[in-house]
Amino acid sequence: MDKPAVDPYQKMMFAPGHRACPGCGASIAVRLVLEATGPDVIVVSPTGCLETFTSPYPYTPWGVPWLHVLFENAAAVASGVEAALRSRGSSDRVRVIVIGGDGGTYDIGLGALSGMFERGHDVLYVCYNNEAYMNTGVQRSSATPLGTATMTSPATGQAWGEDRPQKDLPAIAMAHQIPYVATASVAFPADLRRKVKQAMAIRGPKYVEVHSPCPIGWGYDAAETVELARLAVNTGLVPLYEAAAGQQLRVRKIQQRLPVTEYLRRQRRFHHLFADANGAHLVSIQSVADGNVNRWALEG
């Protein structure tokens, strides 16, 4: 079918023509987030996939004002944008959000993020978590889950991939007693939009993390991005919850919990776990999911 007569892109906040890989989970996350915030925002992004595929000069899909400074300072830059808006008297009308990956959030940008939280800036920080440094070619980050094979946590010899558990960044955010922390997934757009809207209704620092599969880094067919995101939630590996001032508010319950193997076996980054005869590592990962289910009461 041909293009519709009305130009659908005229007001679009995240236009096509960007250079994300086919099936990119982060791209879905960005569009859904902006649908929830509306156009009266200034977006700050750290260096990363999102920055790279949206800013090869002079091409950009952004239909909202967007600023990229460096890798490790998005939260500080956003603090400055927000301070400037306050001084201009337009902070009621225009809001600041950060959209960045797990590398720029969990690792190199954590100091700046903590500063932004404790100073209380009115900024929504959205982390699209694809669980490794994808832009540089799939190296592990502190968001990389247990057992994941990446280029710097290879599964070879005695090594079984990433051998440390993920950093719990939402918990670190909660420890700052900020007014809103939530986890979401690209598999549940309505839930994600609602959480972003909820965050935008609150003044002060907010943190929303969006689990965003990456076909290249995880090793699966691009068409399965949403399915894998859903499996991550339904196995309990990615709990979806909301918290305020350090206290849990509500969780998204899992209707029918699946074993983690249902999620793991569909990704190349976990294939080595299935070659192991005794499956000990699969048991370790299952216990991560079980732990999440218990801690967040994801069932029932």
Binding site: Y9, M12, A15, P16, G17, H18, R19, T54, S55, Y57, P58, Y59, T60, P61, W62, G63, V64
Partner: peptide
């Protein structure tokens, strides 16, 4: 600095210029 325009001195770009980059 939209496609076909001279380089912008500070690399500032107009919105949605990627529409000129069919993927």
């Amino acid at each position: 600095g939209a496609p076909g325009h001279p380089l912008h001195f500070g690399l500032v770009v107009a919105p949605r210029t990627s529409l000129a980059y069919p993927t």
